[in-house]
Structure formats: C-alpha cells, structure tokens
C-alpha cells in the first residue's frame, strides 16, 4: 500500500504533489478530487455536475453511461472503488422539473478509504443500464429501487417485486406522489366497537 504511494512517479509536472494522495479526496476544490479529475479526463461530457457538501463528493453522470463509469471507477488501478455500498433512487418531483429520478450509488474504495457518490438522472419511463454486470451486490439493490420507484434497470437478470407482494398493483410507494396510506381504501380495523358498550360487571368500565 505505502509502497505504491512512494514508487508511483508523478504523472503531471505542474503538481509536484502525489496525484493520488488521500488528502486530495477531501480537498476543498472538488475538481482536485482524483475521481473527478480522472472521469473528466476519460469521459468528458458524461460528467454533468460535481457537488461537494459536508465533505462528500457527488458526481452526476449521464444515465446511459452509468455502467461504463461504474466499471471504470471499479477497475481503475488507483481509484479502485471496488465496493458498491448502496444503490437507491431519489424522486426529485418537488425539487426540479426534469429528470424525475436520480439513481444514487454510494461507492467505497477499500484502497483509499474514501466514499464517492454517483448520481444519474432518469426520467419516468426511461431506463438505466443495470450495474449488476459490474457488481453482483447491485442485484437486490436494483430490485428494491425498481420495487419502490419503478425505475427499470436495463439488463437486470431478475427485475421483479422485492419487498412488496408480487401482485402489487398500486404503483411504487416511495414516489413523492404516492400518498402515505396508499391509493386504495383499506378496511380500517378497531374503529367500530365490536363489543357492546355495556359496563362489565368486574371492572365497572365500558368494555
């Protein structure tokens, strides 16, 4: 680990510092973040936006390149974001007009001990390439995101309901337009007294 850091010769002349130093991942200027730098260099237009908030870096990418970007980050020798920690989605209905959803990936690099957040905006009805070919762990997480938001992951081997019943026909509950108690009228229990209100002999109170 430390050997790698010392033997690596500096690539860029203008920065005398080691380009993969751990401090760079936390630098105030987000453009110095090695992952941002590499992605901009490698993919150019694919990186839509880069945000830094509370020491966390978020990279917005175009959805159709999500799998390539993920694979690049995972297989990159120095970045080495080998772990997909979490994959979920965000319904941006009340925050912006389009695209409607964000697919959010939390990545972790065991080598550098840093996190990175990848976001890809998708519209309703649009599909995102599945990252299951990159990480097997995405299988269940993408199924959950489909279950909760209705985002279709293109190329997922087994995209079906996960937490909700297989025959759930009420849409996707974590969307912002889904009411808390669901669309359907469910019989509510315990609202009517099934036992008569006569006072019981033992307690003197209504039953």
């Amino acid at each position: 680990m430390t050997d790698d850091l010392t033997t690596e010769s500096p690539v860029q002349e203008e920065t005398p510092r080691d380009p993969w130093a751990r401090e760079l991942f936390f630098a105030d200027d987000v453009e110095q973040h090695p992952a941002v730098r590499e992605l901009r260099e490698q993919f150019g237009e694919v990186v839509v936006d880069v945000v830094r908030f509370r020491d966390e870096t978020t990279i917005h990418v175009r959805p159709e390149y999500l799998r390539q970007v993920s694979d690049y980050l995972r297989t990159h020798e120095q970045l080495s974001f080998k772990m997909l920690i979490d994959l979920t989605a965000l319904d941006m209905l009340r925050l912006r007009t389009a695209p409607r959803f964000d697919v959010v990936l939390q990545l972790y690099s065991i080598k550098n001990r840093v996190r990175l957040r990848l976001k890809a905006g998708v519209d309703d009805g649009q599909s995102v390439p599945s990252v299951v070919p990159v990480w097997n762990g995405a299988n269940w997480l993408e199924r959950e995101a489909y279950d909760m938001f209705g985002i279709v992951f293109e190329g997922h081997p087994n995209l079906r309901r996960m937490l909700l019943p297989d025959d759930w026909d009420e849409g996707f509950p974590l969307r912002k337009d889904y009411p808390l108690r669901g669309w359907k009228e469910y019989p509510s229990y315990n609202t009517e007294r099934t036992v008569s209100r006569t006072r019981t002999r033992w307690t003197g109170r209504g039953a």
């Binding site: 309703d124 009805g125 599909s127 209705g150 297989d166 025959d167 026909d169 849409g171 996707f172 359907k184």
Partner: peptide, 25 residues
C-alpha cells in the same frame, strides 16, 4: 432482457387505471 414495465407517472391515478406492474421476469 427485462420485460417489466415502469409504472405510471405524474399525478395520482387510482388502482384500476394503473397498468399491471411487477410482472415477473
């Protein structure tokens, strides 16, 4: 390839209007 359909979008729709979702792949 997946055959699952995305659900409806936009404003609240009632259950009977919803297309069948959650189809098995």
């Amino acid at each position: 390839s997946t055959v699952a359909q995305p659900g409806t979008d936009g404003m609240p729709v009632f259950a009977e209007d919803m297309p069948p979702t959650g189809t098995y792949t």
